[in-house]
Design a protein around this nucleic acid. Structure first.
Length: 122
DNA sequence: TTTCTAACA
DNA sequence: TGTTAGTA
């Protein structure tokens, strides 16, 4: 893993900063952590500290939600293991972009309708 | 002041 | 998900 990636994985900001960066509520951010969508580190007084990668992941989660995914669906998208190598990380990005491209039209139509119309299969 | 956990009018 | 209570 390059130094640049190490920095992206470095947990540095508190939840307050993440809220501003993602426009998600603290409630949602903590809930997504419980769903294993992000894994912030804990510091001093049990405070959560997020990395750039965590913020990026949260922003992607917002896209999945807009595309109509539910927690279970998003959870299945990222079922990565503890050891995330550089190559696996890159592949993960490509996969995300491909899927996002697939739902591009859906996301646009959702925006036009102004309302969220969840579509899930069983 | 900010964040944390737990719980619910 | 929002929001509130009582802490650290």
């Amino acid at each position: 893993m390059s130094e640049k990636e190490l920095r992206k994985s470095m947990s540095v900001f508190p939840i307050g900063t993440v809220i501003k960066l993602t426009d998600l509520s603290a409630r949602q951010i903590r809930y997504y952590e419980a769903q294993k969508l992000v894994t912030p580190k804990r510091t001093d007084g049990n405070q959560r500290t997020y990395s750039l990668n965590d913020v990026d992941r949260l922003l992607e989660v917002k896209d999945w939600l807009k595309a109509g995914y539910d927690m279970a669906g998003i959870r299945s998208i990222y079922q990565e293991k503890s050891a995330t190598t550089t190559i696996q990380w890159e592949e993960h990005r490509l996969t995300d972009n491909d899927v996002r491209r697939l739902f591009y039209d859906d996301i646009l139509s959702e925006s036009r309708l102004g309302a969220t119309t969840p579509f899930k299969r069983s």
